[in-house]
Simulated scan of single mutants.
Amino acid sequence: MNFTFAATKREAQGTGASRRLRRAGSVPGIIYGSGKPAINVTLDHNQIFHLLRNEKFHSSVVTADVEGSKEAVILRSTQWHPFRQQVLHLDFQRVDANQKLHTKVPLHFVNADIAPGVKLSGGIVSHVATEIDVSCLPADLPEFIEVDLKDLALGHSVHVSQLKLPKGVEVVHHGEGDPVVATILQVRGGGEAEAAAPAA
């Protein structure tokens, strides 16, 4: 899916200027990277709000149409109002088709309902991680990475090293060890109930 959003260059900067833009239904933002000067832009709040509701927009290379000049970018950060459904500011980074990018990709967990630890042992799935850092060329960026739980038993976990990554995609791992992304836990109270049954 190819996302495109419209943006216009903005000259006025500062808190007051940003406040006026938001009152007018616009969102201030910035586009930077790829050795080019950063440009301050203004976006339509309604358009960008609906795009942000789509998970794929957060992990895809998207097109910024800045007054007719189109650039490939990825969303780097979003600032939201503390309690209103209002976007306050957006940061986009330009991408180069020939240079690897480093970004986060969501994890999609499948087959939890048929996992032995759930179906046979009555456990519950704990999603330890919901996204993962990856490095790849823009053309290889996946919308998500699937985590198959169909063989997971109670008390067992799926680790980063067990993920099936698309071609050209590498995990960027910080720190030591092999982090857990999901595990199946015993439902609290289940063990005590089973232990008490023979005694009764």
Rank of each mutant, 00 (worst) to 15 (best):
K70N: 07
I30V: 15
D148R: 12
A97K: 14
H45M: 06
L43G: 09
N46P: 02
V158F: 06
D113Q: 12
V160T: 15
H50W: 08
V110Y: 06
F144Q: 15
L163C: 03
R53P: 02
H127C: 06
Q93V: 15
L90F: 05
I48R: 03
S161C: 02
S161F: 04
Q162R: 12
C136T: 13
H127F: 09
L141G: 07
A153F: 15
G155S: 05
Q93R: 11
G29T: 12
H58Y: 01
P142A: 00
S161N: 07
D133Y: 09
Q86W: 07
V61N: 03
D65A: 01
E71L: 07
D44K: 11
A129M: 15
A38M: 09
V158R: 10
K36N: 05
G117A: 03
Q79V: 04
Q99W: 03
L137G: 04
A38P: 12
D91G: 02
T130H: 13
V147I: 05
K56M: 12
A38H: 13
N98M: 12
E131W: 02
L149Y: 07
Q99M: 03
P37W: 02
G35A: 03
L51F: 10
V160I: 15
P106A: 00
I124M: 11
V160H: 09
S161T: 12
K150C: 02
V158C: 03
D133C: 04
V128I: 11
E71I: 08
G122D: 11
I124W: 08
Q162H: 11
A139E: 13
L120C: 04
R94T: 02
K100G: 01
I74S: 05
E55W: 13
L107T: 06
S34A: 14
K100R: 13
L137M: 10
S59Y: 03
L101N: 06
A72R: 15
G123V: 14
F92T: 10
W80F: 12
V41C: 01
V41S: 01
E55C: 08
I31H: 00
E131Q: 14
N46V: 10
C136G: 08
L101S: 04
L141N: 09
K56H: 13
F49Q: 14
V160W: 05
F49N: 13
V87Q: 08
L154Y: 02
K104S: 10
Q93Y: 09
R53T: 11
H102R: 15
P37N: 06
